[in-house]
Structure formats: C-alpha cells, structure tokens
Amino acid sequence: MTENNAAIAAIDDARALLDTLLTSGWQQLHVASGDTEIFLARKDGGINPMRVVAQRPAPAIAAPAAQVGPETAVPAPHVATLEHALAVGTHVTAGQTVATVRVLDEREDVAAPVSGMIVRVDAEPGALLEYGVTLLSIAVAA
C-alpha cells in the first residue's frame, strides 16, 4: 500500500497542525510544503485559500460559451423504461417535466431539478434504465 504512505504522512501532518492550532490562539493556519498544502480554520477564521483558487477558472482555458453554465445530470429515479424525453435545446424551468418513464403499465413524470437548457439526452426511448443512470443533462442557465 505504498501509494497510501504519502496520504498517511499528510494526515499525520494535519493532525500535528490541528494540535498546534488548538494550543495556540490562532484562528487559522495555512502551510504549503513541497507538494503538500494544508489549511485549518476555527469558526471565525478566514476563508480557505485552497478552495478559492480551485473555484477560479484557470486563465489558460478558453471561456465556455457564455450562456452555458455547469451541467446537471437528471438520473432515473428507479429502474424504469424511458418513454419520452424533451429534445436537446429545450429550455426548462425547475420542476417542469422533462421526461416520462414507465414501470409496468404505470407512467411517471421526471421533473427538472434545475432551470436551464437540455444539452443532451443520454438514453434512448424504450431503453431499460437502471436506478441512477443519467436520463438527460441540463446546462444551468447562466
């Protein structure tokens, strides 16, 4: 389990730093050493710089089409057969029916969890969908 040794070492480092933080009067602690970066904060500590960096789009990557936000997958609620789904490009609002599935002779509507545009229908009508598989994907309205 050698690949875990680095993780264990990092966890041990974090435990030591937690001890340091608790015995000090500090509100937060941020350490970067080699390839390891650790941040700890008390309740009133500052924001986490590691998360801020991660959320900022890397400048080297071309900005995506301006109106298309992150995608939300709409999963099958349980095993069912797909009857019908709205077409790619359809604008939908949260709560609106985007697909109909069938269990034996009973039909059930699947609602959009978010507002946005359908960017992909991931399943074919007539297909047996297992629980959790993606029916279609909605790009959240920007």
Binding site: M1, I11, R15, L21, L22, T36, F39, K43
Partner: peptide, 28 residues
Amino acid sequence: DFPDALKQLLDEFSRSGIRELHIRKPDF
C-alpha cells in the same frame, strides 16, 4: 494503516470544534 490514520484525524477534527480542515497533495 490508512483507515486508522483517517479515523484518528476525523475523531480529532470532530472533537476540536474547528470549522475547516483541508489537505491537498498531487494524488490525495
């Protein structure tokens, strides 16, 4: 081993009452 180390850290984190703890390595 890894689960033990993680469990110790989680226990200590819960007891400490601090808000946030973040570790990052290239593959972890």
